[in-house]
Amino acid sequence: MLRLVVLISGGGSNLRALLARCDDPDFPAHVVAVGADREADGLVHADEFGVSSFVVPFTQYETREAWGDAIVEAVQVWSPDLVILSGLMRLLPPHVVDELTPGLLNTHPAYLPEFPGAHAVRDALAAGATETGASVIIVDHGTDSGPILARERIAVLPGDTEGALHERIKPVERRLLADVIQRIAEGRIDLEAAR
């Protein structure tokens, strides 16, 4: 049974989906803790599912590196097998990535390497793309540039808004993440080999 720590910044809709998936006794992972860089609305999902949570407020540290040290310390208390970034809207300092990789995973609302960055859905629409997608990656030092563990295409429909397209992408992100976690647990993905 894989131990997961999930890090969030916002409402945590993807976190909620993962918590629900982990409630399935046949799913080979469980969330042991949820962390946030602020008093995020999504922490309510951890409470709802009886999962411990912690907050490491970015604004209480003089440097990003000092905040990163505190994040690593808070995460490692839980001895996780995987750390999942689920809407954490703050870049982790390089030493944090080094400490947690290759077990540091992120989902992204695009078919990487297309449209990396914080505005992937908006960027796809602005580029006039007819397709975008969802991806699950190992986090590295670049912007959404880590090894791709899973990805899937999603059509951009005529008249799509950023919100409508993003809502269609989210269920695919959630399914891909659960599938990747399952494959890691079953030994079908070797993170060391993938990095």
Rank of each mutant, 00 (worst) to 15 (best):
V72G: 02
A194P: 04
V34H: 07
A155L: 05
T107R: 12
A185Q: 01
T161S: 15
V97Y: 00
P116W: 10
P147D: 11
A134R: 07
T107L: 11
L43C: 09
Y111F: 13
I71G: 05
D23I: 00
Q60M: 03
Y61G: 01
F27P: 06
E167W: 03
R16M: 04
V121L: 06
A155K: 10
V32R: 08
V180H: 13
R174M: 03
M1T: 14
K170L: 15
D160C: 12
L176P: 03
G11N: 15
S79P: 01
S53R: 15
F115L: 01
L157H: 10
R168D: 05
D26W: 03
T107E: 09
F49S: 12
H119D: 12
A40W: 06
Q76R: 15
R16A: 14
L2N: 05
V5H: 03
A124R: 00
R188M: 02
E99V: 05
A40I: 06
D98N: 09
A46I: 07
A110I: 06
W78N: 13
G146N: 01
R21F: 09
L176A: 05
V172W: 05
V72Y: 07
L85K: 02
G103N: 10
G68A: 06
S13W: 07
V5I: 04
D26E: 12
V96Y: 03
F49T: 10
S145C: 07
D160L: 13
F58D: 00
E186H: 09
T101H: 02
R168N: 08
R38T: 13
D98M: 06
P147R: 14
L157F: 10
C22D: 07
P80T: 03
L88Q: 10
A118P: 11
G159W: 11
